[in-house]
Design a protein around this nucleic acid. Structure first.
Lengths: 332, 332
DNA sequence: CTGAAAGCGCTTACAG
DNA sequence: CTGAAAGCGCTTACAG
């Protein structure tokens, strides 16, 4: 490998000058010329590891997601990449798979100084981690975060999930539904659930405990299974709210497999608005959350706290969800 | 930050001994004891950047995909992560978005010594890159690679895509279809196309040039659009082969939007077998490719060439595709 | 098995 | 603006 010293020798200047030229610092024109020529002739390319050690900064961040199986996180990852790219950063992707040990390991990796900061999504163990996290002094931004209270002295960029649940309920109520089932991921989707229940309560309707079903993984399969259970056990239910679109897709298929027409016999609404939801049959009504804006905002906040750690106070940024009516919901 | 020197001082030994203990090298038991105690008391954690510089190895690889929008690559990424995790590696994810400049940048990043190797998927510019790539001396493994010839002195782990196209055709032929349209990504899906055409030719059937439609991005939208075009212009067509499942899903919806029943009026077959394809309506018949095995094999090959660069010859590993019959294809 | 030194390839003060 | 030095925090030979 050709090093900076090689370039300096060839150009007849000191390493320092080479470093200055490469860093774009003011340099005498002839020095600049000599260095650039030598760089080209030698095909020199800086060693980023050495630079990182000297600078104490790697320009690498860690993006932690529960799983890429949910397209929601793939969309986030894509947007995060585009944003950090503009600022000369790259990311290491890691999945927790809702595994406590993995969660913790990834968190510990911050102490190894190989990354400058971390973007961390809520998963099953986030509330535990949150406590530990907020005590340390690393650049961390929490995103798509739902458990309350938000950890002190950490920035979070999230959605008003309570409002999201509320919107889903309001839509169903307007359509005249009174008997509604809910399938939610536990313990991570508490806010979505509570927003939903709040709206019903405000309309004077208490939802039967038995119509609330929790799952551990928010997958298509869980949605299918619980959807089937609810519909079998409680024929009076006319609508189901699934707290993410993957589960809602499962419910959709379960209902139709049981011979129930959607939305004539049963309405189904999701939350996420992943790309695929426009293509289910019928297309899924959902509560959309601004994934791109969320990803972008989280990145900006993180980079700010990496680059100006001193004057960055932790802030909580909440984005608005919105109802997207498609064809899986209808009047009772 | 606490460094190795701090630990050494506290333990009353030399840095060297600390390094040895951490590396698991043979050490006198009492030294071991002292070091471990000091590490714990100080909460020492090694600086990975310094280690990387000293060792000349970062334990980081780069995973390059065209886009995460296609769940195919998300599935690959998930599997790659699980595999490298076993070996103590992590990956930097980057997308090329079929952009020549980005492609090239990522490739150049190898020279910066921040990653030990690269896993590179075929994209629109891969054939260009392949030439450059094979001249350099970095650990690179090509995966999901389709353009021929495979670059010399580079390992590739891929699928027999010609066979995949052939299988799709054979299935349609067996069902009695003679008038078939094809929607393929150009220039990346040439082998799938040619395998398909081969099977028809062997049956004495030449497919009309006009029934072959190329797209630039293999997306759902492209599939929808071209599907609509073909079906509008050529009512005699009884089956369509889309060279990936995302496009096939688009064709499926286009056909049904035009009032054609699947598979009664028109059969549709994809290639990929992404998770979602089991949940389209009707569920999509597809040619599955062993994504997990491919990802795993590619990782193993890459790590081998990183860790034992000397005695690793480039090999070409081709995995078998398989027909998965669901409900989007039927007899004519 | 241990100790003192050199080195990985940069950047960051600090005199001139 | 330039030059010689020290330093980032590890690991790798190399004598003892």
């Amino acid at each position: 490998m050709v090093t900076m010293a090689d370039v300096a020798r060839k150009a007849g200047v000191t390493k320092q000058s080479v470093s200055n030229v490469l860093a774009g610092k003011p340099v005498r024109p002839e020095t600049w010329e000599k260095v650039i020529t030598a760089v080209k002739e030698l095909g020199y390319t800086p060693n980023l590891v050495a630079r990182a050690l000297a600078r104490g900064k790697t320009n690498l961040i860690s993006l932690v997601v529960p799983t890429l199986k949910n397209p929601f996180y793939a969309e986030i990852a894509e947007e995060v990449e585009q944003t950090i790219d503009e600022f000369g950063y790259q990311f290491i992707l890691s999945t927790t798979r809702n595994d406590l040990k993995r969660s913790r390991q990834q968190f510990e990796s911050l102490t190894h100084r190989a990354i400058d900061g971390m973007l961390l999504a809520e998963d099953h163990y986030s509330s535990y981690d949150a406590k530990t996290l907020s005590q340390r002094d690393f650049p961390i931004v929490l995103y798509s975060w739902e458990s309350l209270p938000y950890p002190d002295n950490l920035s979070v960029v999230s959605i008003d999930f309570r409002q999201a649940g509320f919107l889903a309920a309001s839509h169903l109520l307007e359509l005249g539904h009174r008997n509604c089932g809910v399938i939610y991921e536990n313990p991570t989707h508490q806010l979505r659930l509570s927003g939903f229940l709040d709206a019903f309560r405000m309309s004077g309707i208490i939802i039967d405990e038995q119509w609330l079903r929790s799952t551990a993984d928010a997958s298509y399969e869980s949605g299918y299974l619980q959807g089937k259970n609810i519909l079998r056990d409680f024929p009076q239910i006319s609508a189901i709210f699934a707290t993410n679109d993957l589960m809602a897709a499962g419910v959709l298929d379960a209902a139709q497999a049981m011979g129930r027409n959607v939305p004539e016999d049963i309405s189904i609404i999701g939350l996420d608005d992943i790309t695929q939801s426009a293509h289910t049959r019928p297309p899924l009504t959902s509560i959309s959350i601004p994934k791109k804006a969320m990803a972008r905002e989280a990145v900006l906040l993180l980079l700010r706290s990496i680059e100006y750690s001193a004057n960055s106070l932790p802030v909580i940024t909440l984005l608005h969800p919105a109802l997207v009516v498609r064809h899986s919901t209808g009047p009772i």
